[in-house]
Amino acid sequence: MTDLTTGLWGLLFQGVWVTIQLTVLGAALGAFVAFVVGVARTNRLWIVRFLSGLYMEIFRGTSALVLMFWVFFVLPVAFGWQLVPMWAAVLSLGLTYGAYGSEIVRGALASVPPAQREAGIALNFTPWQRLRKIVLPQAWPGMIPPANNLLIELLKGTALVSVLGVGDIAFGASLVRNALGDSAPVYTIILVMYFVIAFVLTRGMRALERQAKANLGQAPERSRLFGKGRPAAATSTGGK
């Protein structure tokens, strides 16, 4: 490891910054998509439910890497849409993980007792007010643990962009590997880097969950070493 010069470390840390940007932007787009599609799937018009369900099945059905190849290589040729690589990456990540997220949103909305909606009707709230003031705030704490799992999946998914030439950690690693001619140190280092980012994200989400539960007057649960709400048993409705 002593062979790694300051310049090579610099390459890796530039990569860390790009990975963080990809994760944050991808998560922002993904969260937006997840809420829009997830809420649309509870709409009373069948056509809205059908289209949002179709979106989810298509983007959950295909492989993230294949979708990324499609956005990078097919969109420019077939439609003449040439995106900056960074944005093409964010778009693919956000659309894919947003589709998984929509299932989290839909499930959490469905878990709020129907009686709450009825109380909202009895107080004459509009449907939008019922969603925003009553249902969403109650659904929110339940969304956080599965959203954390999905966020880690997204972080891991950002490594895919290195294949397409976006300068993230994994891309930096391939440059460093070429310079050193030695693979073990650099790949060990970046695996640890990813692990540290994942750890920080998980801790942050745990804090968010505690706060959200406190707002509902519920006591927080004790966590394990690496945060509790792991995908204990993934169901078809969960992340991944």
Partner: peptide
């Protein structure tokens, strides 16, 4: 608007 209701299970908003 002119109707109010009290439910068996209260249905207060826990949030």
């Amino acid at each position: 608007k002119s109707i109010g209701m009290v439910f068996q299970q209260f249905n207060l908003f826990p949030n």
